[in-house]
Design a protein around this nucleic acid. Structure first.
Length: 574
DNA sequence: GCCGTTTTCGGCCCGACTGTTTTCAGTCG
């Protein structure tokens, strides 16, 4: 079984943590962290690249040494260096780095002076009052450690959609403060990352203290972690941490840039600034004492010789180079979307009728909506057999005569059976406007079998779209073992479309896959898989993910007019 | 450990807040 990028990255992260606890050169530690990040973000399988003898040193942050280590991991599944480190640094110490307030320095002291190697030992030492006697520690630190341990705090990530209500409520709350001129939730939320660890709020005001006081009075606040004159940090009742920064108007753009990140993106910008003998921080871009930019982000990018870079691109995946060459993509927007190609009704497991779904889509300004109820294999959803599907097709024909602003497309979401055959006969599939196929059971097949299964389904000439290709559920279910690159090759050959499922629990394909699809020339459908009228609005999450994957209007099929779309679905004029 | 129109050595982002401190280290983002 080839090793996954995520597993390689995990090993590199462990090396970084252990080296840090040992007190290694922090830049060396950072090099491992950056390499790990590069690996986990890389759309292609490194194991495969190693197998093909491709060079790894072209990846950012990976030199000869790390390339060799990655090759060792791919070949042996492990790294001798890690094994050696584990003998010197008890692996339990690693988990202590996750305790708020404990960094590598303090963890090392705890180990060296008190022999602590685990959270349980730390708790005991703190209870016995031994921690407070260490230099640099005190009563308060000891108490904070105990509190953090009793909360059992493991940094938890929130799905974008679960953080959104809090983000909107906070924005509104802060706008209610007279001293606030502008407020934006920045960070990974603004980059539309599929999960966020916390919210970073940037407010524009000349009275920081007043804004901070207003901020900590927000109704959802569980506890205040810190509050100063320009910055504060709180934890909300649902456990989400929120950091606020207040800056004056002339710094707002620079602060947004700083707090939107991603960190490597901003570090690279600082680097560019240094090369131009400028200094970039959250207050502006400076030449000596003089502020040359900072009011808006565009101003800062401009002063660095770059085009404005959309937040979703700021992941340090080539966007800075593209901006300097004026080669940035013109990203997909919500307004580009002309219809939804995946939806369900009460005929199976949806909550609204055909007509209700149609009207809701019409209200969104769509030209078309594909009705794609499940096939019979999905028993829990009361999936349709051929007879019931034909009944629905007739209903759609009748309804289309009444509807004026929108057209319903006749479709189905057909289960891919274990052998790769489809759950409805070709005869009826041929009569549909759009055929989606997807895997809903046997998600744990080995990669070879899963890939063969999906490839066989795509070989059916009636199939248009492969829905939620990897089957992952964010935070709940890992993606299935699937050779996504092979599937994409097949999709290109056969004119099939891959779905970017916009359900915020799925967002499948992920951003890296979208980027790969674009590079390989695979067409994408951004679809909500709505099981009710209220879910059609989930399209915004799909658009965000598409933008993170550098997708443009041309790459996405449901930006086409109905006529163009119909031609595409007949696989003509590809 | 990486990286390079300030190159193969010597840099590597930087400011706020907290707690333990009499001037600052550690942590965090």
């Amino acid at each position: 079984m080839p090793i996954h990028n995520a597993e390689i990255a995990a090993i590199l992260h462990e090396v970084a943590d252990l080296l840090e606890i040992e007190g290694e050169n922090p830049f060396r530690v950072r090099a491992y962290r950056e390499a790990a990040r590069t690996v986990e973000n890389h759309p292609r399988s490194l194991a495969e690249m190693v197998g093909k003898g491709e060079s790894l040193t072209r990846l950012p942050g990976i030199g000869e040494d790390l390339a060799g280590k990655i090759r060792e991991i791919v070949r042996t599944g492990t790294l001798r260096q890690t094994e050696e480190l584990r003998e010197r640094v008890p692996p339990g110490l690693r988990s202590l780095l996750g305790v708020p307030g404990l960094g590598p320095r303090r963890v090392r002291e705890l180990h060296r002076r008190l022999g602590i190697t685990s959270a349980a030992e730390l708790e005991r030492a703190a209870r016995e009052g031994r921690v407070r006697r260490l230099p640099g520690f005190g009563e308060k630190t000891e108490r904070n450690i105990l509190e953090a341990l009793s909360r059992g705090e493991t940094p938890r990530r929130f799905r974008l959609a679960s953080a959104e209500p809090a983000a909107r409520a906070l924005e509104e709350h802060l706008r209610g403060c007279a001293a606030v001129r502008e407020v934006v939730v920045a960070g990974s939320f603004r980059r539309r990352k599929e999960t966020v660890g916390d919210l970073d709020v940037v407010a524009c005001s000349h009275d920081g203290r007043r804004v901070v006081e207003h901020f900590v009075a927000f109704g959802g606040v569980e506890r205040v972690v810190s509050r100063g004159g320009t910055r504060s940090s709180v934890v909300l009742k649902d456990g989400l941490e929120v950091d606020l920064r207040v800056v004056p108007e002339e710094s707002f753009g620079a602060a947004l840039l700083y707090f939107t990140g991603a960190q490597p993106h901003h570090v690279a910008l600082r680097d560019m600034a240094l090369q131009k003998k400028l200094k970039l921080n959250e207050y502006g871009l400076f030449r000596g004492e003089e502020r040359v930019a900072g009011r808006t982000e565009a101003e800062v990018y401009g002063a660095l010789g770059l085009r404005y870079i959309e937040p979703e691109l700021r992941e340090y995946r080539g966007e800075i180079e593209a901006a300097s060459e004026d080669a940035l993509p013109e990203l997909l927007t919500r307004e580009d979307i002309r219809g939804d190609l995946h939806s369900h009704t009460t005929a199976t497991d949806g909550r609204n009728s055909l007509e209700e779904m149609a009207r809701a889509a019409e209200e969104r300004g769509y030209e078309y909506l594909a009705i794609t109820d499940h096939s019979r294999r999905l028993r829990v959803a009361r999936g349709l057999d051929e007879r019931r599907l034909r009944e629905q097709m007739e209903q759609i024909d009748r309804l289309n005569e009444e509807l004026e602003g929108i057209t319903l497309l006749k479709g189905a979401e057909v289960d891919i059976l274990e052998d790769g055959s489809l759950d409805l006969p070709d005869g009826v599939l041929r009569e549909l406007d759009v055929v989606i196929c997807s895997v809903h059971h046997k998600l744990r097949l080995p990669e070879r079998e899963q890939t063969r299964r999906v490839l066989r389904a795509l070989a059916n000439p009636n199939v248009n779209i492969l829905a939620h290709p990897t089957g992952r559920l964010i935070g709940r279910r890992e993606p299935c073992e699937l050779d996504v690159e092979r599937v994409m090759e097949a999709a290109v050959e056969r004119g099939c479309i891959l779905e970017l499922n916009a359900n915020p629990e799925r967002l499948d394909l992920n951003d890296a896959h979208c980027r790969l699809a674009k590079e390989m020339g695979v067409r994408i459908a951004v679809s909500t898989d709505a099981h009710g009228t209220n879910e059609l609005a989930n399209i915004r999450f799909g658009v965000g993910q598409a933008r993170r994957g550098w997708l443009e209007r041309e790459d996405v099929v449901n930006t086409r007019s109905l006529g163009e779309l119909r031609r595409l679905l007949r696989r003509e004029g590809a």
